[in-house]
């Protein structure tokens, strides 16, 4: 405790550009998380809709695909793509990556990380979205059909607005997990916050003050706690706003366990 709180061990934080150096690394994580989030949400919704398709073969194949990626350890997938991804894919990524991204994120191996993050998270999100859609009363879809709406109209106007609202809490907690998982890309050599932290502690970097590893890691951890708490606050805000607007308490889809149980109960 004395060691942790000793002010001389925290001196690195205010010397030179040390704090800025860590924050720059953290910005890479945040951007990586944002890109992966956008693609995971889009592909997750697509997978969820396919999973609820009326063709049995599509349902089975999508189900297998989702279960495959959901059940593998993410780090295994990241490492596999980092080793096995063909050179041409990486080159295609680096030439296609938009110029506003930082240089670190334009490197070819980022594609391996992004692909793994999106495959894993879109599978998890697809199951959450499916649960949200399936938790709706069947009458909603039937009424929409009876009113003569097409499949696309039914989804866009009736099913998705209600179903997606119910899955906000579960989706946000998955996005928090995604945010934390971006640190795993340090293992395949992408220069993000963990690597910046290691550089800072490995020698007398800016300012000439040796930064103790434990303290640097605590600072990095605090950055994650703050961003993740902001995300969960956002989730609660959305819930409360929804309650005030509709005057009803939302019955959120918390996790897949709830879904399993209701299915068994029926």
């Amino acid at each position: 405790m004395v060691y942790l709180l000793d002010p001389s061990n925290w001196e690195w934080l205010i010397t030179g550009r040390n704090a800025r150096f860590i924050l720059e690394g953290f910005l890479v994580n945040v951007q990586l998380a944002l890109i992966a989030m956008v693609f995971s949400l889009i592909f997750g919704l697509g997978l969820a809709l396919l999973r609820l398709s009326k063709w049995r073969a599509v349902v089975v194949v999508t189900g297998l695909w989702i279960d495959l990626w959901r059940n593998l350890p993410l780090i295994l997938v990241i490492l596999y793509f980092a080793i096995a991804m063909p050179e041409s894919w990486r080159d295609a990524y680096s030439s296609a990556a938009p110029g506003f991204l930082p240089d670190v994120l334009q490197r070819g191996r980022v594609f391996a990380a992004l692909l793994a993050l999106v495959l894993y998270n879109s599978a998890v999100l697809a199951e959450i979205m499916r649960a949200g859609i399936q938790s709706l009363d069947r009458g909603q879809g039937e009424a929409a059909t009876a009113l003569g709406l097409t499949y696309a109209q039914r989804m866009r106007l009736v099913i998705l607005p209600q179903g997606l609202r119910r899955m906000v809490p579960a989706t946000i907690s998955q996005l928090i997990t995604l945010n934390k998982d971006t640190t795993l890309v340090s293992i395949i050599g992408i220069q993000e916050v963990m690597r910046q932290g290691r550089i800072l502690t490995s020698n007398n970097f800016f300012g000439g003050v040796q930064a103790p590893l434990l303290h640097v890691l605590l600072f990095i951890g605090a950055l994650f706690i703050v961003t993740n708490l902001l995300l969960s606050r956002l989730s609660r805000r959305l819930e409360i706003r929804e309650q005030q607007r509709t005057g009803t308490t939302l019955e959120p889809v918390r996790g897949l366990e709830d879904q399993v149980r209701t299915v068994q109960a029926n």
Binding site: K180, T183, I187, L214, L218, I225
Partner: peptide, 16 residues
């Protein structure tokens, strides 16, 4: 719950 596991693991071994 909000600190990445990799950060915790690095703290627990290299940090300590």
């Amino acid at each position: 719950r909000n600190i990445p596991l990799l950060v915790l693991l690095t703290m627990a071994y290299a940090g300590l």
